[in-house]
Design a binder for these strands. Structure first.
Length: 703
DNA sequence: CTCACATGCAACAGG
DNA sequence: CTGTTGCATGTGAGG
């Protein structure tokens, strides 16, 4: 009997959320005393998108397939800003690994196993409907064109059709609205950590409104299936899984989200409605929607705030108070939270400005988007875990045209200055701005690379921060002792001790906050570079990693990144001749001349290339051949690298320069999907050249 | 027409 | 004979 996502009323959820928010405010207030650190911003909308898709996929997807019009992408187009492509969205490929990512954000065990296709479908559907309404009522958020979802940040007052996000949730299942959901029940029911959030009734001193509402709150979360009672139940009450999801989400974000934050976030009603409809009234549909929203909030809104706050440890009270519609509400701070020594978060150095653009994917941490990547794409990418790679996989195609179209049209803030991408003035955002889109062998866009990975990365960082508050600014010098065999001729970038400093990070360089311990990444590129274990076996390419392993990898990658300033140099989609047994890869002339050392003679120079994915150092030779009146640049001795990484035609390599350590890095990114052969997608002959989009992608990697 | 690039293939080296 | 090296040539995109 659940009404699913229909909007019959909004009281329940709204109220329930309100309570939660109140509690959160309280928590926040306590934290303020301690410190509030903005979350690191890694990704922006793009990533959101990717993540979103992840969430969307759900078991229930199948149930609502019929409801959803996969082909209809209009829904979000407006409401949710034309999302950059979702990784799985357009592609029918089942390869989308999104599901994996899903689980992360929402630890809940509740099923998150949806097929990628479903995700895609979901999004597509969502988009379709929203569009209409969106245009009418809302203007695209100033946030950025990149915003995937058009959630508006409009102040409460302007809300035309905008609903508070959380309120909207309330609408979803709501029935009559009278019922007030008591967050307490949520927490109480949750075995996971009740004590952490000791939001007992007494803990809250709700405003009158809330108090009255509380009386009607359900005492227990109903198990799924008890829909019948719904009528008075809140969105959550009808489905314990939702409660769990929300609870988990709150727990994860308790440090950086306040009630205010939540209140300030608005979604257009039409969007929600459309989404609800599209997702179907099923439980899964609800979960998807909830996840989607939470994800969005977490990814965009929270990050935005974090970025906005200048001081790492100072909470922006003004934000809270100003927007707080409910000044009266207050409650006892929960000691658990307050006591959290880690409450203070350090802002990520590299997330400087709240740019509308989401920081691109981490170079090492491919975003999960890719359906194609699902197995491969980024999955292939080094350090990416499978899931990550999966997203990337589709990237393989990167046919310039596709890629560029995507990047350029949607995310590519930068002009296609192929060679100068690195020089962009936006250090942190070098790649952040880019989203990836993957295409399947048929040229269909598989997914958008982008964000999930970053999201994961962010989570990892946050976790580290909590554990190691003081680490944030500590940069471990990464002294990789490369085995590098650099010969006399070997080229190494001049490095500065690997010490990171803003100074070192002029525009092009991406600053990676040092991570304390683990390793991993996300830029779309290959998996995360492991710190240095040269010992790591090459075979560890992301593609092979299981999704569950991805988390570790990501963390590694993050660490890795944090220790390096990577500059994207160039990327090359591999041709048959590049992956053949000749052991040489033709490099794009323009990029080679722009970013690699100038060659005096055709014999070239040897360059130690550290494999980002494995930390293994390959001694390659960079040279050129005279070709007519021009030159043809080559990277030789690549055979082992290619084999080790299992690179094939259609895959690509990305070269980076680590300014910090003065070395070159290479990453092999596999885009081919496990099933279908990548061959079909051979990039057009000239794709390398014009693939500004590819460049953008690469940048993300760097990021 | 020019340029960049992918690839064919001849020349060469080593076993 | 086989594998490698280096050049030449064909092809497609862009001007």
């Amino acid at each position: 009997m659940k009404r699913g996502l229909e909007y019959h009323g909004k009281q329940d959820l709204e109220d329930g959320l309100e309570n939660v928010m109140v509690a959160m405010d309280d928590i926040q207030s306590h934290q303020q005393t301690t410190e509030f650190v903005p979350m690191e911003e890694e990704q922006v909308l793009g990533s959101i998108v990717g993540d979103t898709e992840i969430f969307l996929d759900g078991d229930g997807s199948h149930s609502h397939h019929h409801h959803l019009d996969v082909n209809n992408t209009s829904i979000f187009s407006t409401d949710f800003l034309p999302l950059p492509d979702f990784p799985c969205m357009s592609s029918s490929s089942s390869t989308c690994s999104a599901p994996t990512a899903l689980s992360k954000p929402f630890p809940t065990s509740s099923s998150s196993s949806s097929t990628s296709s479903s995700n895609s479908a979901s999004w597509a559907i969502l988009k379709s409907d929203a569009e209409e309404d969106v245009h009418k009522n809302i203007q695209p958020p100033a946030l950025s064109s990149t915003t995937s979802m058009e959630l508006s940040l409009l102040p409460p007052e302007d809300d035309v059709d905008c609903l508070n996000v959380m309120e909207d949730l309330g609408y979803m299942d709501l029935i009559d609205g009278n019922e007030f959901w008591d967050p307490c029940t949520l927490f109480q029911s949750d075995n996971q950590n009740p004590q952490d959030y000791n939001m007992s009734d007494q803990s809250f001193q709700l405003s009158q409104d809330h108090q009255q509402n509380q009386e009607s709150k359900p005492q227990q979360i109903e198990e799924e299936g008890d829909d019948d009672q719904n009528d008075g139940l809140s969105f959550f009450t009808g489905n314990s899984e939702l409660a769990v999801i929300f609870f988990e989400w709150l727990k994860q974000n308790k440090d950086y989200i306040s009630a205010e934050d939540m209140r300030s976030i608005k979604l257009k009603r039409s969007t929600i409605e459309s989404a609800s409809k599209r997702l179907g009234g099923t439980k899964e549909g609800k979960k998807q929607l909830l996840r989607l929203i939470l994800e969005w909030v977490e990814q965009y809104q929270l990050q935005k705030k974090a970025a906005a706050s200048d001081s790492p440890c100072q909470y922006q009270e003004s934000q809270l108070h100003d927007s707080n519609p409910n000044p009266n509400s207050s409650f006892q701070y929960n000691n658990a939270v307050a006591s959290d020594p880690n409450a203070c978060f350090y802002p990520s150095p590299w997330m400087p400005t709240p740019s509308p653009y989401i920081p691109g994917p981490d170079p090492f941490y491919p975003t999960p988007m890719a359906p194609g990547y699902t197995g491969d794409s980024y999955s292939n990418v080094p350090s990416f875990t499978n899931m990550e790679y999966q997203t990337m996989e589709s990237a393989q195609s990167w046919p310039p045209s596709q890629f560029s179209a995507m990047a350029a049209s949607q995310y590519n803030p930068f002009p296609e200055n192929e060679s100068n991408l690195a020089t962009q003035a936006n250090p942190q955002g070098l790649f952040s701005q880019y989203s990836y889109q993957l295409y399947d062998g048929n040229g269909e866009r598989l997914a958008k690379l982008g964000s999930s990975a970053t999201k994961e990365a962010r989570k990892k960082r946050m976790a580290r921060q909590r554990r190691l508050p003081s680490h944030h600014y500590r940069h471990h010098s990464h002294q990789t002792q490369h085995q590098s065999q650099s010969s006399d001729q070997s080229l190494r970038i001049v490095g500065e001790n690997c010490t990171m400093s803003p100074a070192n990070n002029p525009g092009n360089w991406v600053y990676w906050p040092s991570a304390a311990s683990s390793p991993m990444i996300m830029v779309p590129p290959p998996e995360a570079p492991q710190p240095h274990p040269m010992t790591e076996r090459p075979g560890m390419q992301p593609q092979n990693h299981q999704k569950h392993a991805s988390a570790d990898k990501r963390s590694q990658s993050q660490n890795w990144k944090t220790e390096k300033n990577l500059k994207f140099l160039l990327q090359k989609v591999l041709k048959q001749s590049d992956v053949g047994n000749l052991g040489r890869i033709v490099l794009p002339k323009k990029e080679a001349e722009s970013h690699l050392p100038e060659l005096e003679s055709r014999d070239g120079i040897s360059i130690a290339m550290e494999d980002i994915g494995t930390s293994r150092v390959w001694n390659m030779k960079y040279r050129f051949w005279p070709n007519n009146k021009s030159r043809m640049y080559l990277l030789e001795n690549t055979g082992d690298f290619v084999r080790t990484n299992g690179l094939q035609e259609g895959d690509f390599i990305v070269l980076y320069a680590d300014t910090k350590c003065g070395k070159y890095l290479i990453r092999g990114v596999k885009v081919r999907q496990t099933g279908p052969k990548a061959e079909g997608k051979k990039p057009a002959k000239k794709n390398v050249r014009n693939s500004s989009s590819a460049i953008a992608l690469m940048k993300q990697l760097v990021k």
